[in-house]
Design a binder for these strands. Structure first.
Length: 208
DNA sequence: CAGCAGATTGACT
DNA sequence: GTCAATCTGCTGC
């Protein structure tokens, strides 16, 4: 396994990082319990110029403070008073870019995730549900993604560009013309459904 | 301080 | 399709 280095988060455009996160393994640890899934959907939030971003116009509050820190930290906030949404902070200090993780494909610790979700079948196809399955809450806001609580690994899974669907972000109609920006990225579900073998995914499978 | 909207989800008509 | 759950931050009185 190779944990993504700080430079992955601090270098490059937030939309490129959002694309590059597809196919990476998001892992959480709580005591001896590990859970993990493949990132299948992301959205980029481009800081002070992006009307959909919590940091639009330089807005800085207790909630979004971590966005203004260095890249490679977790920004977790409460949405609709109920759902804990997990974001990866990118870029340098004082440049509040972030990537919302919108969906994962469960890989490890399925039983634990089912228990946390307290629901059958296990679903991790939305930003709120994946956070719950992985045990991510606002208590983990500000967590260093180079630590051993939440991290992201490159396990060699290759996602060809033609397997990536691009489109406008979900639920940001309030953002005016910025709502139309093509900042949502996901692995083509038809393509993903063709993977029938979880072992292949674990062992450096290739999406075609 | 009241009211409201929000990077959502699941239950229900 | 409708709607409630319920915390944060913004707007207006």
């Amino acid at each position: 396994m190779s944990k993504l280095p700080r430079s992955f988060y601090t270098g490059g455009d937030v939309t490129n990082i959002a694309r590059a996160l597809l196919g990476k393994f998001l892992v959480t640890r709580s005591g001896r319990t590990m859970t993990a899934g493949i990132i299948t959907e992301t959205e980029a939030y481009a800081g002070v110029d992006d009307r959909a971003s919590h940091a639009y116009g330089g807005r800085r509050t207790g909630r979004n403070e971590v966005m203004y820190g260095q890249g490679g930290f977790a920004y977790v906030y409460l949405c609709y008073g109920i759902h804990h949404l997990f974001n990866v902070v990118t870029n340098a200090e004082d440049i509040p870019h972030a990537v919302l993780i919108r969906a994962i494909h469960p890989i490890a610790g399925i039983r634990t995730m089912e228990r946390r979700r307290d629901r059958a079948p296990l679903t991790t196809g939305g930003p709120g549900t994946l956070s719950q399955a992985l045990g991510i809450s606002t208590a983990l806001n500000g967590t260093d993604l180079l630590g051993n609580t939440i991290w992201i690994e490159d396990r060699g899974l290759i996602v060809p560009r033609r397997s990536i669907l691009t489109g406008p972000r979900i639920g940001v109609g309030y953002a005016g013309s910025d709502a139309l920006l093509p900042y949502r990225f996901r692995i083509d579900p038809r393509n993903f459904a063709a993977w029938n073998d979880d072992k292949d995914r674990r062992d450096h499978a290739r999406i075609r």
